[in-house]
């Protein structure tokens, strides 16, 4: 399962990308390429996988999802709005003085956000603790954590991988948003992760690989969880940074953008619509 698998974005995926561009138009900044990379993954998680109650965000038996690559938060915020955690108008105030939402997700400030992330390598250790608590308490809730491929440069990811394996946390699922690009350029050039699936296997994980923009495939991978009775799970989601607008795709310039003129945003929205007409 690789990037070459053709994917046709459905209406919701197109609409969510359009909304992110509209947010960028108003707020002036955001990690657009990163958000476009993980949209389908987080959408399926909230639509079809996670057990939660938006009216009771602290429900003790809820499944937990941590966006460890916190810079992709626009993709998460959209799902939280759709699920009823907070009002859509909050999206358009992101990072304003006094706003609830910021450029990275914050625990305790944003309903539905399970951990404050932004500095890389923090979400997985916290997720391991949550999953371990479930084991101690013999609870059924599951823990999901989405990490970036650039984030896999961090040593703490691999420290946690060792621990998750030791404790046989089959209630933990790591999703790697493997878009092959980090801030400066290609992961292969900066800090090569390959063979990534073998690395996770050697750390004691049960591994699946999936096209991270193919709704049916992602759903199917989640539905097969847990992959093993005694191993933590990892889904390596092959994605495309900036997916959905060809000139943004795999283009490090769009990892984070600020001060993009409104007419430029409008042009991108037109391209998005025309490329998926």
């Amino acid at each position: 399962m690789t990037n070459s698998t053709p994917v046709v974005l459905d209406k919701l995926s197109i609409q969510q990308r359009k909304t992110i561009l509209e947010i960028l138009k108003i707020t002036g900044r955001g990690h657009i390429g990163s958000a476009f990379s993980l949209l389908e993954i987080v959408r399926i998680l909230y639509d079809d996988v996670l057990s939660f109650n938006a009216k009771e965000p602290q429900w003790p038996d809820r499944d937990r999802f941590i966006l460890s690559k916190g810079h992709g938060c626009l993709g998460l915020y959209l799902q939280l709005v759709r699920q009823g955690y907070f009002a859509e108008k909050e999206l358009y105030k992101t990072s304003e003085q006094g706003a609830m939402l910021g450029g990275h997700p914050e625990y305790g400030r944003v309903p539905g956000v399970e951990a404050s992330t932004g500095s890389l390598g923090h979400g997985l250790p916290i997720a391991v603790g949550i999953a371990l608590a479930a084991k101690i308490d013999q609870k059924k809730y599951r823990t999901f954590v989405l990490v970036g491929d650039g984030e896999c440069n961090e040593g703490s990811i691999w420290e946690s991988a060792l621990a998750a394996s030791k404790h046989r946390l089959n209630n933990l699922t790591v999703i790697v948003d493997y878009n092959k690009f980090q801030c400066y350029g290609a992961t292969a050039d900066i800090c090569n992760l390959e063979p990534l699936a073998d690395k996770w296997r050697s750390f004691g994980f049960a591994v699946e690989e999936v096209n991270g923009h193919d709704i049916a495939s992602i759903r199917s991978s989640f539905n097969r969880l847990p992959y093993s009775s005694d191993k933590p799970n990892v889904i390596i989601a092959h994605t495309v940074k900036g997916f959905g607008i060809s000139e943004l795709e795999s283009n490090p310039a769009w990892h984070h953008k600020s001060r993009v003129p409104a007419d430029e945003i409008q042009r991108l929205i037109r391209i998005l619509e025309s490329e998926h007409a």
Binding site: E114, P125, G129, E159, L162, A163
Partner: peptide, 26 residues
């Protein structure tokens, strides 16, 4: 034994793991 953990030389991970445990009432 279910509440005793000797986890190896991985302090960065351990502080995060403890935070996750504390979030769940430990």
């Amino acid at each position: 034994p279910e509440r005793f953990f000797m986890e190896g030389v991985s302090e960065a991970h351990l502080i995060g793991m403890m935070t996750g445990l504390a979030m769940c009432g430990k």
